[in-house]
Amino acid sequence: MEPVYLFNLIDRQKSWLSTRQSLVAQNVANINTPGYKALDALPFARVMERSALEMAGANPLHMRPAPGETMAAATKPADGWETTHAGNTVSPEQEMIKAGEIRGAFSLGTNLQRSFHSMWMSTVRT
């Protein structure tokens, strides 16, 4: 069984949530732009599957890892509820729901990190 790096995992999720929040903000900013297609981030589980293994080489003759996909590039067209006559697929209600989900996930991650940090500190003190 491999160790779980909880703090690293929470940091990666926060980075993904920041990317998703930026996409939500971009969608809301373009709510009246004709032809704009709403974007959303790939689910966090898929992002983690894609970046599960990281290769590194100590020798220049070793295999080099392919350029990895950044979380900002891991986007997909959002599943819109409706499309306007101008071709815009941004739904204000859907974007606000996403923003609420992001806020809740940030809070959960922060609370988990705080709890595990205090448990870790209590074991170090004794």
Rank of each mutant, 00 (worst) to 15 (best):
D11C: 03
L23G: 09
S122V: 00
P77W: 07
Q21K: 12
M119S: 12
S51C: 02
N30D: 08
L108A: 15
R12H: 09
S15M: 12
G80L: 06
T89H: 07
R20A: 12
P60M: 13
E2A: 10
S91K: 03
V47T: 08
F106T: 06
V24E: 04
P67H: 06
E101L: 07
E2S: 15
E95M: 09
E82C: 02
G104T: 06
L9C: 02
Y36W: 01
V124A: 04
T33R: 05
T110N: 14
T33L: 07
I102K: 03
I10E: 04
W120T: 15
T70I: 01
R125A: 13
P43S: 10
P34M: 10
T75L: 03
R12I: 08
Y5D: 14
E82Q: 11
E95T: 10
V28A: 05
T110R: 14
F116N: 13
H117G: 12
W16M: 09
L9R: 08
M121T: 11
A41I: 01
M121Q: 15
P34C: 08
H62S: 14
E101S: 01
H117A: 15
T123V: 15
M96G: 02
W81F: 09
F7D: 15
M55S: 06
S22K: 12
A29G: 08
F106Y: 12
A74I: 02
Q113P: 01
M119Y: 03
V90D: 02
L112G: 13
M1A: 14
L23H: 06
A41Q: 00
D11T: 15
W16R: 02
W120Y: 15
E49R: 01
Q113N: 05
E101W: 00
T19I: 13
P67E: 14
N27A: 09
H117D: 13
E95S: 08
A66G: 06
A78N: 02
P77G: 09
L61S: 08
E54R: 13
H85M: 14
N27R: 03
D11V: 01
N32H: 07
L9N: 14
L17I: 06
L39Y: 01
V24R: 05
A105L: 02
R20H: 12
Q26A: 13
I97G: 05
L17C: 05
P43E: 11
P67Q: 13
A38I: 05
I102P: 00
A105D: 08
T75Q: 07
G104Q: 09
T126V: 15
Q94M: 09
V47C: 07
L9D: 04
I31Q: 11
T126M: 12
V4R: 03
N59G: 07
E54A: 14
W81N: 13
I102W: 01
L6W: 07
L112K: 07
S115Y: 11
N8A: 14
M71S: 09
N111T: 15
G104E: 06
E49V: 00
G57V: 06
G109I: 04
E101N: 10
R125K: 12
F44R: 01
I10L: 15
P3L: 10
E82K: 13
L23K: 13
G68N: 09
A72N: 00
N32L: 12
P34I: 05
N88D: 00
D11H: 06
R20C: 05
E69I: 10
K37G: 01
H85G: 14
K14G: 08
G104P: 00
G87T: 03
S107R: 12
N59Q: 13
